[in-house]
Every structure is written in structure tokens, then in C-alpha cells.
Nucleic acid binder design. Structure first.
Lengths: 131, 131
DNA sequence: CTGTATCCCCAGAGATACTG
DNA sequence: CAGTATCTCTGGGGATACAG
């Protein structure tokens, strides 16, 4: 039987990261994923692969720059794959990886929360400024 | 019996908000809550009320300006309450509301995800730049 | 201790134009 | 269609000083 505590096993399985610490890499990662555009791009990819233009249309108001930039980050971090089909014109499809899908489940909660609780928040804001 | 579909009932219970739409208020709310400091502040308040200074110590690297600013936002939106005790020196406690606790459960997932998957992400980044 | 008020700077983000 | 390259500019956010 193991002589390790649960915490010790946890620390071995993965180094211990703590986003409360300023210098911890997970703080920076949290900054990357706790982001409006990341939520929306992953949300749009939840139902399957999407082309650049499709994403742009679905995520109203996102600039091409921010879309490309967000996709590049997600690709770099292994959350999304990019597949180029050499046709004329060229076709590019983005698809979530397993890791990306894992994160999607979490950030989807954020989007849903915002939509579901918008009314309550607006109500409270109205009270706050009148009061 | 009701003649409404599930979707219709849902639409009545709350107005329909959709963060994919640029002008929808929920898009702005998503921008507020999908935020590093919000995650960390709510995370620090998860175990009970905390004083200003306690929060500042627990969330390493947050400036006083960002802490106060974040707390004001959370207070305005009804996620956190602020209680002042008129002593010398003054004492201020922050505590999550029910709504805040509801959001905390969601954003906590973000923090945990970042910590749990940091290793995988770092691995992939290393591959990405070498490749 | 808690918080407001300034100053300042640079990175984030939009707009535009151009390329394969 | 997909993407890069610039330019610009706002505002996010740190540092500092002061106040109740």
C-alpha cells in the first residue's frame, strides 16, 4: 500500500500549481482562459469543427484580429487544432482537442451563468444606483 | 396544463440573453466575470468573509486599486456584500451573497482547471515552439 | 486599516490596407 | 477565404501620495 497522503500523490501526479501565487504559471494560464473571447470561441467550437468565417459570423462583433489571435493561443496551448485544406480559395477548419473540450465544459458554465443571471444582476445594479 | 414548450417557459422565466450577440448585455457581463481577478477574489471569499487586507495577502500580486475595483464591481452586481465596522482603525468585511456563491462554483472550475492542466499546457507549448 | 485621487505608461484591441 | 502587417488610440492597471 502507498505511504503517500492524498496531497502527496496529487503533487506527484502533477506539480503543485497555485494561481493565488503571483509567479505561478497557472496564474498566467488563468489570465488566458478567463477571457470573453476564449469562452465564445470554445463555445462556438463545441458542436464540431468550424471554419474561420463561420466562427466570425457566429461570434458577433469579434474582429478578425482577435479571432485569429485567440485561435493561435488556443492552438499553442493544445486546446484547438488547425487544419488547412489547400483548395482555391484555401479552407481552414478549427476543431477542439480533448483538452480543449475539457476546458469548454468549464467556460461554457460561465457563458450560461451570465445569460441565466443577467436579469438578477441588472435588477441589482438598478437598486445599487438608485439607493 | 401549460401550452408552452420548454423553450417558451424558459424565455418567460428570464428574458432570452445570448452572449454570442454583440449588443446583448450578457456579453458585457461575461466580460466582467471572465476575469482573472474576479476568479481569485471569489475564490478567496469561498471559505467565508474576509477583510480587505486578508484578501490582499491571499491574492498575491493584486494591487490595492484592482482589489478595490473588483470588489466594487462584485458589490454593484450583487455578488458580494460589504460591511463596515466603525472602529479605529476601521474594519471592513466582504462576504459572498447567494448569487456570488453560485458564480463562485463556476469560476472555481476555471482556477482548478488552470492548476490541474498547467503541466499539459506547458508540455504542448514546448512542442509547439520546437516543432 | 481601508480607501480615494492622480499620474503615467504600455499592451490590448479596433480599423484599415494588403497578400497568398 | 484566411491571414499578416501597420497604425492608432483608448483604457486597464501599476505606482505613488494623501485622507478618514
Amino acid at each position: 500500500m502507498s505511504t503517500m497522503t492524498a496531497d502527496q500523490r496529487r503533487a506527484v501526479a502533477k506539480q503543485e500549481f497555485d494561481a493565488f501565487m503571483a509567479a505561478c504559471p497557472s496564474r498566467a494560464l488563468l489570465d488566458v482562459i478567463a477571457n470573453k473571447w476564449v469562452c465564445l470561441v470554445l463555445g462556438a467550437l463545441a458542436d464540431g469543427p468550424r471554419r474561420h468565417g463561420e466562427l466570425r459570423r457566429q461570434i458577433a462583433g469579434i474582429s478578425q484580429k482577435m479571432l485569429t489571435q485567440t485561435l493561435r493561443e488556443l492552438e499553442r496551448d493544445g486546446l484547438v487544432t488547425r487544419e488547412v485544406t489547400a483548395s482555391v480559395p484555401v479552407r481552414v477548419d478549427y476543431e477542439m482537442t480533448e483538452l480543449g473540450n475539457d476546458l469548454q465544459r468549464v467556460v461554457h458554465g460561465l457563458k450560461v451563468w451570465a445569460e441565466d443571471n443577467m436579469a438578477k444582476v441588472l435588477e441589482h445594479r438598478a437598486l445599487a444606483e438608485s439607493g
